[in-house]
Amino acid sequence: MLPWLPENISTYGGDIDWLFRLIFWITTIVFVGVQGTFLYFLFKYRARPGHKAIYSHGNNTLEIAWTIAPSVVCVVLALLSRATWDEIKAEIPPVDVTVRVYAKQFNWDFIYPGPDGAFDTDDDLTIENELNVPVHKVVKLEMLSRDVIHSFFVPVLRFKQDTMPGRQIDGWFEATKTGEWEIPCAELCGFGHSGMLGYLKVHSDQDYAAWVAKRWSK
């Protein structure tokens, strides 16, 4: 069913996909119902000689019914969306790894705080276009931009957040699978927007520990 969504590898991506599918089925049913009725009417009430239209100005009961029905559907969808939205954007769970993301025309800079766990110290490490994280750990991203607005988009994580110059925006994710995926920029940022591309590398715990050891063992 719906093979077109990319693979999901984040803890909350399943909730997004569930909502997506729910809306897909609601809209599909409405679509088939409305277009089916529409085509049926076009056929059934096509002009024929001797045929005269019904004289009717409407029906208040129907008006009330088709005002209430979509209202209920929309309110339920809003309520269902609320919990997922809060989970993803409003609250950040206890953090295991923090990485600072600086977007710039046309690269992603990933800054790691190093062994002291603090940014803006000597052991910070900046890596261009490569985000290394451990699997099954909560990763917090502190996102900023050096110039224009960019948008940090990881399709497999169902993660998207604009990065804004002059303002730090925090986001989080927890990957559920090791591997390597692309991080495109999703907001027009200039002539190099297309191809502004980083990579997400999700490591197992051991591999991540090894990567950390190698990087900070100078």
Binding site: I16, T27, L80, S81, E187
Partner: peptide, 17 residues
């Protein structure tokens, strides 16, 4: 109908832009 996908904020995270 396609507008409803964007209106649902969590789905919009993915399909925005």
């Amino acid at each position: 109908l396609s507008g409803i996908y964007m209106a649902a904020t969590p789905v919009d995270i993915f399909i925005h832009d």
